[in-house]
Amino acid sequence: MRSDQRQLLDTVDEALKRVLAGGFSFISFSNYVKVAVASNYADALGNSPFHLSREEVPVMAVFGWPVRSGAPFQYRFRDVMNRLEDAGITPHWKDEVIALRVKQNRADASKGQDGNSPYEAASFKQLEASQDLVLGIMHLQGAFYVLLFGSGIAFLTLLGERHYRTR
């Protein structure tokens, strides 16, 4: 990429509008862009006109927990924080915070407080009020139980026939 093609934009919304227009790519912090796209450009089902990469470039973000030197809980606190991170709880919390922020942004947009949303607030209400439901594995769980039950009965019948045939 030539240096004269790189641009510094003031807002994420401005950059996302340029991406929609075509011929422009945007690289920024993933959490901020996820919130902006989900709040302003995605429908109620989560579909958006953007492709967000699943791979992220790690950026060193260090958070400090200042405690008094030699505090009796210092090592235990660090151990608990490491366990929370290793268990995947902190990314789960991050996803919950993002979802809550998106929900708040959409609520503000539906009230008409956010006038710069590219989608109309009425379209959000229509999509959320829609009775269409996308079926997933959880919805088909009963069918799998019936299949498993039927396979079990068939197997027991096979065993019974084999047992009585050998006599």
Rank of each mutant, 00 (worst) to 15 (best):
D43N: 15
I153E: 04
R162T: 12
L156D: 05
D13P: 01
N105P: 01
L135A: 08
D132A: 11
D13H: 13
Q141H: 11
I27K: 06
Q5K: 10
S110A: 13
Q131T: 14
R83P: 00
K34P: 00
G152D: 03
A99V: 01
V37R: 02
L133A: 10
N105M: 10
W65G: 00
D95K: 12
N40S: 12
V33Y: 07
F77L: 15
P118K: 06
R54W: 01
S130N: 13
R106V: 04
M138L: 12
V97M: 12
R101K: 15
K94S: 11
Q7I: 04
R2W: 02
T157Q: 07
L147S: 14
M81P: 00
S53G: 06
T11G: 02
R6M: 10
Y119V: 08
A99R: 15
Q113C: 00
A129W: 00
P58T: 06
A143G: 11
L84C: 07
W93K: 00
L9V: 13
G22V: 02
F77I: 05
G46T: 06
G23E: 01
P49H: 06
D86G: 07
F50W: 08
L140C: 09
D43I: 02
N82H: 05
A61Y: 09
P58M: 02
D4M: 01
V35C: 01
L158F: 12
F144L: 15
L16M: 03
D95E: 15
F50V: 05
E85W: 06
V59T: 12
P66K: 08
F73M: 10
L20S: 06
T157Y: 09
K111L: 15
V97H: 09
L16V: 03
A154V: 12
G142Y: 03
M138C: 04
G112L: 02
R68D: 04
N47E: 11
V80W: 06
E55D: 13
A99H: 07
F73V: 13
L84W: 07
A38F: 06
V33C: 03
L16Q: 02
S48A: 15
P91Y: 05
L16H: 02
E96Y: 05
S151T: 10
N116C: 02
G150T: 14
V146H: 03
K94Y: 03
A15P: 05
M81I: 11
M138G: 08
M138T: 14
D108Q: 13
G112E: 02
P58F: 05
E128I: 03
I27M: 03
Q131K: 15
E96F: 05
A21K: 10
P72M: 02
G160W: 13
F24Y: 10
S39F: 05
S39K: 07
L52V: 14
H92C: 05
P91N: 05
L159N: 09
P91Q: 04
N105D: 13
R167F: 07
H92G: 07
G23I: 01
A21P: 00
S69K: 10
T11L: 01
S3Q: 11
R76V: 03
F50L: 04
N82V: 01
V102N: 04
S25P: 00
W93Q: 06
Q74L: 09
D114H: 01
R2E: 10
V37C: 03
R54V: 06
D43F: 02
R167Q: 11
A71E: 08
D95G: 05
I27E: 07
D86E: 15
E120K: 14
M81G: 00
R6T: 09
S28K: 00
L100Y: 08
